[in-house]
């Protein structure tokens, strides 16, 4: 038995067949540590597709958070820094202010971005730092074993809200994207998901917009929230978790653009 039993399936090349899809070359061809059915791997792939298609691999720097995606640099084959918990956008700011020609993105979860890193998140966007913030919101602390997150829905049971999130005691789930959208420095704020093929396509378009805005250097921060599932943390199968997400999360975290750039010429 080979040491590594998980491998990318290979298909026989057949004549007269058109290649319609392949993994981006800048996604490392390794098994990832994410749980089966988790949205992180799809989000990772989309970012690398966008970076590759825009031809910016040689000047892109990513910032990984603390959380499930702490090891994102093992999958994303671009230069990356691993930031302290919540501080990814501060790191990105530090780099972008000196190296304005570099393309910066942060990749952060809800605990990282909307709890411990709230101050950095708000002030980075308020300064209108010309970076892309990618926010994966699965309503839970996945890495540490399923504790309540700032984004956990009312009544949701987690390991630190065993009777369900009680709004009187534990506060309300935080719609941080909506909060950020009111800031002058926010240029583009959108909320997407990756649970269906259609949603994946829309998320890719949103990421493409966000990176393009940064390349064009148009005034402000682009913020792409991806509402995602956490089968392990939610204690559901991947399919159940996606269904639960569609039935429960999207009512509160409405999908779609929250703030779009002003139309040209206006």
């Amino acid at each position: 038995m080979a040491e590594n039993t998980i491998s990318t399936p290979t298909f026989k090349k057949t004549e007269n067949m058109e290649k319609v899809w392949e993994k981006p070359s800048i996604l490392f061809d390794v098994p990832n540590h994410y749980c089966p059915g988790c949205g992180h791997s799809v989000a990772h792939r989309l970012i690398m597709e966008v970076v590759e298609e825009l031809g910016i691999t040689d000047r892109t720097i990513g910032i990984a958070p603390v959380g499930c995606s702490v090891l994102a640099y093992n999958y994303l084959n671009v230069d990356m820094q691993e930031a302290a918990h919540g501080r990814a956008t501060a790191c990105a700011t530090g780099i972008k202010r000196i190296f304005n020609d570099k393309i910066l993105f942060t990749y952060q979860g809800d605990g990282d971005l909307a709890a411990i890193g709230t101050a950095e998140t708000i002030h980075t966007v308020n300064r209108g730092e010309n970076i892309v913030i990618i926010f994966v919101n699965n309503g839970i602390y996945g890495m540490t074993g399923g504790q309540m997150a700032p984004t956990t829905l009312e009544g949701a049971k987690t390991s630190t809200s065993p009777e369900g999130r009680n709004l009187d005691l534990m506060g309300h789930p935080l719609k941080i994207a909506n909060m950020l959208a009111i800031l002058e420095g926010a240029y583009y704020v959108t909320r997407q998901s990756v649970h269906t093929a259609k949603a994946v396509r829309k998320t890719k378009k949103a990421l493409m917009n966000a990176f393009k805005y940064q390349i064009e250097g148009k005034g402000g921060t682009s913020f792409v929230e991806i509402v995602s599932n956490c089968p392990s943390g939610w204690k559901m199968t991947p399919i159940q978790s996606n269904e639960w997400m569609a039935d429960n999360m999207f009512d509160f975290y409405e999908l779609g653009d929250i703030k779009t750039p002003p139309k040209e010429g206006k």
Binding site: A83, A84, A90, C91, T93, G94, R97, I98, A119, E120
Partner: peptide
């Protein structure tokens, strides 16, 4: 100061 030193981290790393 937390943000400031993490900006230093980022810039130094670059």
């Amino acid at each position: 100061e937390v943000a400031a030193i993490n900006m230093v981290y980022g810039a130094s790393g670059a």
